[in-house]
Simulated assay, not measured.
Amino acid sequence: MISELNKSDFYKCRGIVNEKGQLEIIAVIEGVNPGRVFVDDSVSPTSGFVWLGNNDGFLFIGNAENEAFNNELNNFIDRVIIPEAKKVRLNCFEGIGNHIKWNKTIEKVFEHRKLGSWNQRVYEVHKVDYKASNEPAIEQGYEVVKISDTFFDNNDGPIINIEFLHSKILEFWASPESFFGDGIGYCIVYKNEIVSVCFSGFVVGNVHCIGIETLEEHQGKKLAQKLAHSVVKDCLESNLVPYWDCMEVNKPSIAVAENIGFRNVFNYIGYYFLFE
């Protein structure tokens, strides 16, 4: 029977996680980033899935050929997951395998649900690969600022949209304190408004998965590329490994990563179906 683990029991899943798979799963299991974990056996799990705290997918871990678990998945998703997902305004289920054997299982288990898929690419950059000379200049008036706790608090009120930064950080982190304890981040300010952010979304050991977003009206000005350089430089100076995870169809994101010197380390398939 599928059940949800208490956070204090997440450690029980360490042995069934593919260490060479997605960083996000390990970040949740290690308690660095928020998320929920559902397993076949709360005492000694062999199969399960992790619901990322930023609602960016359900990642399947462990034995992909566990018939008892697989046979219960559809009913559990309909009965438990979909009502919970709708509360946070999710309109589809995004399922991802922590290793390649899950692809066949996901395709079989959800074949009746009008299943779609996409390709995802994962990159890393190390000091030897970093292309510092490709850092772009940005237009006058745009200022790169490191995200400090003082800047985040905005006590003097100079930033008019500080809620944008708050919502982005808390999308990935349980609290600002958690982020400042483990993460790194920079933003670009224009006329007292944050127009682009780049920060550690998930962290495992010395590996930092980078999240990035630029307001639509300020896109096309190389702001994301400028910020990515800032975060990458900060990481490399501290012997941290920047990690970049993006959809294969997101050509601008891939271009930014490769221009900086990120190298493609592995790829995986994501699946989705809409809630009825």
Rank of each mutant, 00 (worst) to 15 (best):
I2D: 09
Y11K: 07
K12F: 03
K12S: 02
I16A: 10
Q22F: 06
V32I: 08
N33T: 09
P34N: 14
G35W: 11
V37N: 13
F38M: 07
S42P: 09
P45E: 09
S47Y: 14
S47W: 12
W51S: 08
N54A: 12
D56T: 04
F60V: 12
N63K: 12
E65G: 11
N66I: 11
N70H: 14
L73M: 10
D78G: 04
I81H: 07
K86E: 06
C92D: 09
G95I: 04
W102L: 10
K114C: 15
N119I: 01
V122A: 03
Y123C: 04
K127E: 14
S133D: 12
E135P: 00
I138M: 02
E139D: 00
Q140L: 00
G141H: 00
G141V: 00
Y142N: 02
V144Y: 00
V144C: 01
S148T: 14
D149G: 04
D153F: 03
D156E: 15
P158R: 08
I159E: 04
F164Y: 15
K168R: 13
K168Y: 11
K168P: 04
I169G: 05
I169L: 13
E177Y: 04
S178K: 11
S178M: 06
F180V: 01
C187D: 05
E193D: 02
V195K: 01
S196Y: 01
C198L: 05
N206V: 03
N206C: 02
E213C: 06
L215A: 12
Q219T: 06
G220D: 03
A224T: 05
L227G: 03
H229A: 00
V232A: 05
D234K: 06
D234N: 03
L236W: 01
L236K: 09
E237D: 03
V241T: 13
P242M: 01
K251N: 08
P252C: 11
A257M: 06
N259T: 08
G261A: 09
F262W: 12
N267C: 13
Y268M: 11
Y268F: 14
E276L: 05
